[in-house]
Design a protein around this nucleic acid. Structure first.
Length: 548
RNA sequence: GGCCUGUUGGUGAAGCGGUUAACACACAUGCCUUUCACGCAUGCAUUCACGAGUUCAAAUCUCGUACAGGUCACCA
């Protein structure tokens, strides 16, 4: 039996040989500096903040170099794949403005390097597996899972290196006749790489992010084709990224230690080795130690968490950008007039160790972002958030649309806007007292003022004698002062500070009484604007409530 | 356990042989101000995990120790 026939027996029904595919997927005609990269998730569920970071970095690196960013679905583990997984990924990413030039789409795929879903590429992988077998660079292995587990335990007990290599690679030494017999008997097998590596030799390579790395050469005869006929990640990665002409493999740093396997595979297959960029994981502090943020334990790992909190997607994106390149913040401060898309991400400035996930900072970014929005934008965001999470607020915002926008406009469109909305789940807390339906104060923050008579006096005087609906802000404050002085308060802070004993209190105390009577809170945004929105009738009603 | 990587203020993080060790968040104080917030100003690492070495000079280079993370699947 020739090697060709032997390979055919092991990998039957291969339609085309590797030469066919090499020709079918030609080089991309792009600028030398263009980065071709991909986001290659398994459709196993919701998107995770770390995955979002990776997708964001990949997408930006490709875009800023006029390269290609494509989506490939790695569903070779069919047990873990879920229905709609792909749709979920595409939709989640597009909310963060991460879109693909090529690859899998909601209703199919685009691009000439497909199929972009690994389970649909079985024929392609087989062609290359067959080629390796013909060249004696790969071989079938009939070891069962139990046998492998036993071997591992034995190796562990002997404190030997774990794995399928060298003298432990027993199927490597199988004779062709034995293999043929086993196959003819219907025995299941996997295909392993016949690793040419030597563990005692060092292999060095340059990671775009981590710099120069040194590992022992790979000598593991890793599995490249599973018994179900689908390839393992390692093999699929080599074939796909070669055929799709990926220039940069950007992925999580859990892959770093597999690089020797991967580059060996590229060499054995006679492919050009791509560049690698391994992104450090997002960490979280947990009982004094840091660990990789986990989907299981940490609610903030799921991207849906930010949606629920009402942190704008754009803020999350900005935060991820500061994580990706910490000089981004400095750049942004120096280039306030420029669009953030002009910032150029640099692999060399990405963190090498794990990055602590800093929620406070995210909130700060969110707060700043929201403060720069126009009132009607804040309204739209709030409405959208409330629609999903707070029916009561949603109804009010809908019913009083213009009024609500005015409320959001208090101390907004100005040079130094207020920054008190950190996220949209916070909105109700910030504005409840502006809606009569929500206005049901449990306690009035009267501070040191306890005399109800005095409170009544202050409000009657101001509202009846000095309040004027026509007032602009200066006139309004003058009226406040006049009313205050009439009752023996100091209209001027300096005068009060010089001789406090001459007065009942200061204009600040006077304002506080008015403020608390109208809102129940001692801390609010600008009182003048609040009064303007409340109008005289509602003010009168609130004063009555306060005096009860 | 083997192999790899990392360790700079309360937090994130720059710096990569000679700097007053950036910057941001948080915190504190003061100013401004009718409150709060904003803004502004100031303070917050005599020191870069620890120990040794190389050097005129080390956070930066080398080695060791400790701690942390990653990885060792017919999962990606």
């Amino acid at each position: 039996m020739t090697r060709e026939d032997y390979a055919d027996l092991l990998v039957p029904n291969v339609k085309y040989d590797r030469a066919y595919y090499e020709e079918k997927y030609p080089e991309r005609n792009l600028d030398e500096k263009a980065i071709v990269t991909r986001y290659a998730p398994s459709p196993t569920g919701f998107i995770h903040i770390g995955a979002l970071l990776q997708a964001f970095i990949s997408s930006k690196m490709a875009n800023q170099s006029n390269g290609i960013f494509f989506l490939r679905i790695e569903d070779t583990d069919q047990k873990r794949s879920i229905e709609d997984g792909v749709k979920l990924i595409i939709e989640d990413l597009s909310k963060f403005d991460i879109n693909f030039d090529e690859g899998v789409t909601i209703d199919g795929e685009k691009g000439i390097y497909g199929p972009y879903t690994q389970s649909e590429r079985a024929d392609i992988y087989k062609a290359y597996i067959k080629d390796l077998i013909v060249k004696d660079l790969a071989y079938p292995c009939f070891c069962t899972e139990e046998e492998n587990n036993e071997a591992r335990e034995m190796q562990a007990a002997k404190k030997d290196r774990i794995g399928y290599y060298g003298r432990y690679a027993k199927c490597r030494r199988l004779h062709m006749e034995d293999v043929i017999e086993k196959v003819n008997n219907g025995e299941k097998f996997v295909v392993r790489l016949k690793s040419p590596g030597d563990f005692d030799k060092k292999y060095t390579f340059k990671d775009e992010i981590k710099g120069k790395m040194e590992f022992p050469e790979n000598d593991q005869d890793v599995i490249i084709l599973k018994s179900d006929g689908l390839p393992t990640y390692h093999f699929a990665h080599a074939i796909d990224d070669h055929l799709m002409h990926t220039t940069h493999v950007i992925r999580g740093d859990e892959w770093l230690s597999s690089v020797p396997i991967h580059t060996q595979l590229f060499r054995v297959l006679d492919f050009k080795v791509p560049k690698y960029a391994h992104i450090s994981p997002l960490m979280k502090e947990d009982n004094g130690t840091r660990r990789k943020i986990s989907k299981r334990k940490d609610p903030e790992a799921a991207v849906s968490y930010y949606h629920k909190e009402g942190i704008p997607n754009e803020a999350v994106r900005l935060y991820l950008e500061t994580v990706a390149n910490s000089n981004f913040e400095i750049w942004m401060n120096q280039n306030k007039d420029k669009d953030v898309s002009e910032f150029v991400l640099d692999f060399k400035k990405m963190p090498v160790g794990g990055t602590m996930f800093d929620y406070d900072k995210l909130i700060n970014i969110s707060k700043n972002y929201i403060s720069k929005l126009k009132a009607d934008e804040v309204y739209e965001f709030s409405l959208k958030h409330a629609k999903e999470y707070d029916e009561e607020l949603y109804d009010l915002l809908t019913k009083y649309k213009d009024y609500s926008i005015n409320v959001f406009n208090i101390e907004r469109e100005q040079k130094k806007p207020r920054k008190d909305i950190a996220c949209f789940s916070d909105v109700k807390n910030q504005v409840w007292y502006m809606f009569d339906e929500l206005y049901n104060p449990e306690n009035y923050e009267w501070q040191s003022i306890t005399d109800k008579e005095e409170i009544k006096n202050v409000l009657d005087t101001y509202l009846n004698e000095y309040y004027n609906i026509e007032d602009d802000k200066d006139a309004w404050f003058n009226h406040m002062k006049e009313a205050a002085m009439k009752l023996g308060y100091a209209g001027d802070m300096k005068a009060y500070k010089e001789n406090p004993e001459d007065y009942k209190g200061s204009i600040a105390d006077f304002s506080t009484i008015v403020r608390v009577a109208l809102t129940s809170k001692s801390m609010t945004p600008d009182l003048f604007e609040i009064m303007k929105l409340l109008g005289k009738d509602r003010m009168q009603k609130r004063v009555e409530m306060a005096l009860q």
